[in-house]
């Protein structure tokens, strides 16, 4: 495992920790899109279908369990926790995420490396992950006061896939047997590009020591 991949995973983990910290300590999920969280839970379920059958490393298995467990605990907090669920701003979270699911499923059935159940589900998870942040980005744009934890959450999430891209370049150059997964690369690039606008305002607000606010 190279440093880019590891750093990417840690960023991903950090984003989840930051979000859980906000929810657990502040008992608030203000500004967080439930729809994005639902999409991520679905992404993890479909991608980690091999969790009990395909052992790669202890690190791999533990991380999969952590991502699945955190995704479901976030959903539980936002939907069922009596205090947290009242801070969820349903009216601002209006993205039609079912269309994303449908579009990604159709695309996965059409464009994949191999036509098997597991491979199509894996491909679906890759496509869905690329666009899962959209409801969250729309919600951020509508929120006037984005708190630090929410801003950092999205920032870490964007950095994670960016680092994965460096990891793919590194593996492409160093591993003879590394398959040319162009499908993952294109999706990963789109996923990272979606954050470009957000990154710009995040860095700007950080440099100017101002509160983060996205233009409407």
């Amino acid at each position: 495992m190279n440093i880019f991949r590891f750093a990417g995973d840690m960023m991903h983990l950090l984003s989840v920790v930051v979000l859980l910290l906000k929810i657990h300590k502040m008992k608030s999920c203000a500004g967080i899109s439930l729809k994005t969280q639902e999409l991520y839970a679905l992404v993890f379920i479909c991608r980690y279908l091999d969790i009990f059958t395909g052992f790669i490393s202890l690190y791999n298995t533990i991380m999969k369990i952590v991502f699945l467990a955190s995704a479901f605990s976030i959903l539980w907090y936002m939907r069922s926790h009596k205090v947290v669920r009242q801070t969820y701003d349903k009216d601002q979270d209006t993205f039609r995420h079912y269309f994303l699911i449908l579009a990604c499923m159709v695309l996965a059935l059409l464009v994949h490396h191999k036509f098997t159940f597991r491979e199509v589900m894996w491909t679906f998870s890759i496509y869905l992950e690329a666009v899962a942040i959209l409801p969250q980005l729309v919600m951020l744009q509508r929120t006037r006061n984005i708190d630090n934890l929410t801003g950092n959450y999205v920032f870490f999430l964007g950095t994670y896939r960016g680092l994965y891209m460096l990891n793919w370049v590194y593996r492409y150059l160093t591993e003879v047997h590394y398959h040319h997964r162009w499908l993952t690369w294109i999706s990963g690039f789109i996923q990272t590009a979606l954050y470009a606008d957000f990154f710009y305002y995040y860095v700007k607000s950080w440099r100017n020591n101002e509160k983060l606010q996205l233009p409407a």
Binding site: R5, H12, G54, I56, S57, N60, F67, H179
Partner: peptide, 10 residues
């Protein structure tokens, strides 16, 4: 091309 390709990324 091998038929089984382990997906070692998360």
């Amino acid at each position: 091309e091998s038929t089984y390709e382990p997906k070692d990324e998360l």
